[in-house]
Each structure stands twice: as structure tokens, then as C-alpha cells.
């Protein structure tokens, strides 16, 4: 079973990388950018076939490693 995880910074947490991207885009003369916030996109392929159980497993992975839950949120999507 395939799944994806989006990890993003929580609202209000400073994003130095996003700031650097925004700054560089402006330097490349892309106009009209108000803000850039960046995150991580993770693709997983796991043996589990039951979607509920798969979500449970991935949720544990997110809390344990994939996301820093102090400053990041994550969103899991199960792709059949």
C-alpha cells in the first residue's frame, strides 16, 4: 500500500528556509510574492493492506521520526 505524508511547519513558527526561497525568488525578479513557507513531502510503500492499520502505522512513524511535532504538523494520505 502506498501513502504520502506532508510535513509543514505549524502556524507562526519561523521558517528560515521559506524566507530564503522568497528572498531568492524576489532576487530573480519574480514579482508579487507575499510569503513562502516550505515543508517536506514523503512517499511510503508499506506491506500493510488495511487502510486504517496503515494510517495507524504511519501516524506512529510521523510522531516518532518524520515530523517534529513540537513545531511541525503532518498530514497522511493513503493511496490504494
Amino acid at each position: 500500500m502506498k501513502a504520502t505524508v506532508h510535513v509543514t511547519l505549524k502556524n507562526g513558527v519561523l521558517d528560515p528556509q521559506g524566507k530564503a526561497i522568497e528572498h531568492t525568488l524576489s532576487g530573480l525578479e519574480f514579482k508579487g510574492i507575499n510569503e513562502v513557507r516550505q515543508g517536506k513531502f514523503i512517499e511510503l510503500d508499506i506491506n500493510e493492506t488495511d487502510p486504517a492499520k496503515a494510517r495507524e502505522q504511519i501516524d506512529a512513524m510521523c510522531r516518532g521520526l518524520l515530523a517534529n511535532t513540537v513545531i511541525e504538523n503532518y498530514e497522511i494520505e493513503i493511496i490504494e
Binding site: V13, L14, P16, V70
Partner: peptide, 12 residues
């Protein structure tokens, strides 16, 4: 409760 902690930016 995990209060929002500050994130630093050493380059700044």
C-alpha cells in the same frame, strides 16, 4: 502542552 518554541536563524 508543547508550547510554541522559538526557531532561530543564525544567518540572520
Amino acid at each position: 502542552k508543547r508550547p510554541t518554541v522559538q526557531v532561530g536563524d543564525p544567518f540572520t
